[in-house]
């Protein structure tokens, strides 16, 4: 049987080399699927069909299995993120301290349900399971930066600032 040759990189975008690097480091083994998907997402911001196809072919993982994995884990996104992301922690301590009100306020202001990005691609509204900063509940991540003891007013103010940018 001829030796397996991984497929060529989808384009000369340098980021594919980083993705390929992760796979090579793991000897193109099937079990590197999630690691590689992490690399794709951190390089491209999300996972599109082309990327999943490339990774699946390279690691010899069936397409449906790869897609099953991508959609199983909430950390992976099939759509590009907005320019800014506000992530409201939905952990228990944050819930007890009223995080649901923050989510409701943000959803109302942006006109999108949590988990989506505004039409203009500016702002993504996400919720997280728990970021582990429970003692400062309710917690909001502003483009990844932890803010504690947040009020609806503060969330709306931030959204306003991003909207007019």
């Amino acid at each position: 049987m001829p030796a397996f040759t991984p497929p060529p990189l989808p384009s000369d975008d340098k980021r594919w080399k980083i993705v390929n690097g992760t796979m090579r480091k793991n000897g193109f083994a099937r079990h590197a699927l999630i690691e590689t998907l992490h690399t794709v997402q951190s390089s491209f911001g999300y996972l599109d069909d082309e990327a999943i196809r490339f990774v699946a072919r390279s690691l010899r993982v069936p397409l449906s299995q790869a897609y099953g994995v991508v959609t199983f884990y909430h950390y992976f996104s099939l759509k590009p993120p907005g320019k800014h992301t506000v992530t409201i922690c939905a952990g228990t301590a944050c819930y007890i301290k009223g995080a649901d009100k923050l989510v409701a306020a943000a959803e109302k202001r942006l006109g999108i349900p949590q988990g989506q990005t505004t039409q203009d691609g500016k702002i993504s509204l996400m919720t997280a399971r728990c970021v582990g900063a429970c003692s400062r509940a309710p917690v909001v991540l502003r483009d990844g930066e932890v803010m504690g003891e947040v009020t609806s007013g503060q969330v709306l103010e931030q959204l306003e600032r991003w909207a007019v940018e």
Partner: peptide, 20 residues
């Protein structure tokens, strides 16, 4: 062939072929 698999999770799981 492994054309079928399950995508999503929990109550939203569905069976798919290839990349849905």
């Amino acid at each position: 062939a492994h054309v079928w698999d399950v995508m999503g999770r929990g109550i939203n799981s569905i069976v798919i072929t290839d990349l849905h």
